[in-house]
Amino acid sequence: MALKIVVLAKQVPDTRNVGPDAMTPEGTVNRAALPAVFNPEDLNALEQALRLKDQFPGSTISVVTMGLPKSAEVIRESLFRGADFGYVVTDRCLGGADTLATSYTLSQAIRKIGDYDIILGGRQAIDGDTAQVGPQIAEKLGLTQVTYAEEIISLDEKARKVVIKRHIDGGVETVEAPLPLVVTVNGSAAPCRPRNAKRVMKYKNATVPAERPAEKAEEIAARNAAKPYLNINQWGAADIDADLKQVGKAGSPTNVKAVKNIVFKAKESRVMTGSDADVEGLIVELLNDKIIG
């Protein structure tokens, strides 16, 4: 039996390389100042989806992301690696969303996709590290969840059950859960397979309408009429029947009161070189003061 798989992906600023202009004075992320990358754990989730697709031929993978039009980059990357369909949820009114507003928006997009057996996403995104969106989507869709998944061990499509190995504090656990289900995948799970060259050729020009330059819109429309797979779905708040009170800033119970660069309680440091004399001097001093030894 073929499965309908949904993968949640996010394009994130690469917080591993952050400069001083990373934040705006209002305390939001200055995305323009940072390279945007595919959230690493979402790639682990995509791999689990691709393995299910390998195991159950005819399965389809729909990748959903919320963000600026350029976040279609993560959709293309997913198509290159084996996903089938992509959806970019993008709308001005979705900006400023906290995790609750984000999960509401994504859950509405998943409802619109409609038919799903399993929803996979990364455990957390590196720009917020909250790990909240997955469980919140599960709650909003009335599904249960398995978080911190390491591996989908087996899936019984007749019994509609899946067995998953997951990380817990200080150990591992194997659980059996019913489909449909939300699974969040840990970074220690299998890494995502690389791009497939043929798929790169096929999908490299796939775009959402908002990415297309106005002067070329007609030309692209004509080309895409013959190649509909080059149209990545673009949805606004109205397309997913979103209640505007529950999206963006309006739908976010959390407020940022203040953001500051931390000022450490600076100490008077003793600075020395790595020379033999300096290092030995320090060791002897620490030993004499009974700080070590």
Partner: peptide, 11 residues
């Protein structure tokens, strides 16, 4: 944000 700032959140 990767530990580059400290935010105070209120709900």
């Amino acid at each position: 944000f990767g530990g580059n700032i400290v935010a105070t959140i209120v709900n």
